[in-house]
Structures are given as structure tokens and as C-alpha cells.
Amino acid sequence: MANKSFGQKLLGTWNTRTIVAVAIGAALFGVLMNYGGIPVFTNTSLTTAMIVPVIIGAMFGPLPAFVAAGVGNVIADLIGGWGMWFDWSIGNAVAACFVGALPLYGAYITEGVFEVKHAVIYAILCALGNMIAFGVVTPILTTVFYGGDLNVTFLQAFAGSLSNILVEVVIGIPILFLLARRYKARTNLEEE
């Protein structure tokens, strides 16, 4: 993965393997969204689903993470049946794009590369991505689509992005280290 160009890392390679992985990621997103959450606030829960785009992003890049989160959210809404809120789906997908940008700064999980500096960049990107997605994208879309009040939406989005950042950092970083260690054990061949 290290020798690919920036554009290739950004878009990912769309072969059958990526498609299947993104589909399974979307399904996992839907399951975690429906069954793996702890409610905190109106419209928002401490959902563990946002871990899925991190994993997809680590393996395939930001665009696959974006698709997995977007499709996963739509599917989660259809299964849960609580109505489809496009403002939050698009917000989640935008956040996924930032969270899943791991290959762009050199964290190649599938090759076992994930160090402390990558974890720091990852945490910063989590905060930045959630702020953009839920501080700008979602409130605007909520007001435009559903006529929600801007102030209330900002508060909800604030709570939502805080809980997302919490989950992505507290759960995400240990999982990324574990994954990297596991992949490293498999690819233990060195060039002499």
C-alpha cells in the first residue's frame, strides 16, 4: 500500500474484495447502530458503529469508508425503521471520510504499521472530521431538509460529535493497535 499514489490511497481500489468488504462493513455498521448503542441525548446515542469506517478506512482508504458509513446508515435506518434522516446519514459519511483517512498519513494497518504518532494524527483527525461533519454539514442539512431549529441542532450535533470522538478514540485506538499487531504477525517476512 505504501507505494501507491495519493489519489489511489484516497479512492481505494474498487475490486471485488473491496466491494465485499464495504458491504460487510455496511452490514456491521447497521447491526452496531441498532444493537450496540448506549443512548445519551435526543436523536443521538453513544454508538459503536463509527468504529466500522475506521477499520474499512484502515484497510481500503477514505472513499470506501465513506460509502460503508453512508450505505450502512441508510440500511440501519431501514432496519430499525425509525425513519431515514439524511442529515445524519450524510454527516456520518463525511465524518467517516476523515476518520478513515489512515493510509493517507502512513498508517498501513494491513502491513502492521501503526505507531504512536499515527494514533495522535488519528485522534486529531477524529476531532476535526466530527467537528466539520456534525458542526457544519448536519446542522445545515437539518435546517434545509427538515426545518429544524439551528440552535437545537447545534447542541445535538455537539453532543453527537463528542460521543463519536469519545468512542473513536477510546475504542478505536486500542482496536487499531490490536489489528496492526495481528497483521504484523502474519506478514513477518523481511527483505534482506
Binding site: 464495504v22 458491504a23 460487510i24 452490514a27
Partner: peptide, 9 residues
């Protein structure tokens, strides 16, 4: 992706 995701849920 959509149909496969549903299939695996």
C-alpha cells in the same frame, strides 16, 4: 454493496 449488506446482516 446494498444487497450484499442486507444479505449479511
Amino acid at each position: 454493496i446494498v444487497s450484499l449488506a442486507y444479505r449479511t446482516i
